[in-house]
Design a protein around this nucleic acid. Structure first.
Lengths: 169, 169
DNA sequence: GCACAGGTAGAGGGATCATTCTACATCGTC
DNA sequence: GACGATGTAGAATGATCCCTCTACCTGTGC
């Protein structure tokens, strides 16, 4: 159920992965404990479901229908990530936070890898910078991490670095 | 006691912030529970002590005695961060991980802010790129986050972006 | 009108954990 | 060689948490 995943995502994004108890998660999901455990049979599964949901939402919101022009696409990309941070999360990347909270969970690590891989590929495709996926991912990661402290200045910095990357390509 | 802080740092870096029990932390610190609680009266204080210790070690290892030449300093900076990741942490930045684990802790957030501010200032000073602290911080954050997945390719990418930043300055 | 699939509310078990407290050992100093 | 400060070992406590289970409700197809 997407309503459950959506509620779980909101709870983890707002309170982190350690703090919310399963009863908090139940309230956020808006279902009973029994139903919650039916779709996500353990707390780890709740984390997983929340991240799967976020993955889809992130890709859609950040990469859909970017401008065709390369510079415009880069600028729009950075602005959308800034906008995502503004409305969706107060601090950093939820996938990295999840892995940091449970460093031993291989399933989570695989999900992180898949998420970042797809972000890099989509960024490279959207800007026509084939083979520069890692550079773009590095800028996006840097933006995501510095945004909470520097806000618009971080977005401006990411745009600057994006342009610089184009110039040396 | 620096021995306690050092052991705590090692435990949190290896197991994350949620997993290790206070008894695990006691073992890592190499003292008794009583002594541990004497110097760090709560588990939160243990986290704080570990991060203070890491802050000092990081600055020393990454920024001490960098080359005078700008490009050489930038390259060395990226390589040192890569080396730090290699030996000191398997995943991401410990300060961000700590804040992600306890999003409500204002003391932790202040420590993160201080740490990142000092990193940005030192990076700008070491490379003579005054006013470009945010750009450098963004690259360093991006490197730290992408290193676990891309290793040497992440370091190479950070060097490339550092050079590109110099070219447009 | 009824049976049933799937929902809610919420109490309870079993385990873990942070913190405190008691009892004993060690070591430097006079 | 005795004393006080400081350390160790580890049990006890009180709370929290994940997960299961019981008992009851609701809506839909026939």
């Amino acid at each position: 159920m997407t309503k459950i995943a959506s509620g779980l995502e909101r709870a983890f994004a707002g309170q982190g992965f350690a703090e919310p108890s399963v009863e908090d998660l139940r309230d956020a999901a808006g279902v009973s404990l029994r139903t919650l455990y039916k779709y996500t049979p353990s707390r780890d599964d709740m984390v997983h479901a929340a991240l799967e949901h976020r993955h889809r939402r992130y890709l859609e919101r950040v990469f859909d229908a970017l401008p065709a022009d390369r510079i415009a696409a880069l600028d729009a990309l950075m602005e959308r990530v800034g906008g995502w941070m503004e409305t969706e999360t107060s601090h950093g990347c939820l996938f990295h936070a999840a892995v940091a909270a449970a460093p031993g969970d291989a399933r989570l690590r695989a999900l992180l890898e898949r998420h970042k891989g797809e972000v890099a590929a989509r960024a490279a495709a959207a800007t026509g910078l084939a083979g520069r996926g890692i550079d773009l991912l590095l800028i996006l990661e840097g933006l995501t991490q510095t945004w909470p402290l520097h806000r618009d200045a971080a977005v401006a910095s990411a745009k600057r670095l994006g342009r610089a990357l184009v110039e040396i390509t």
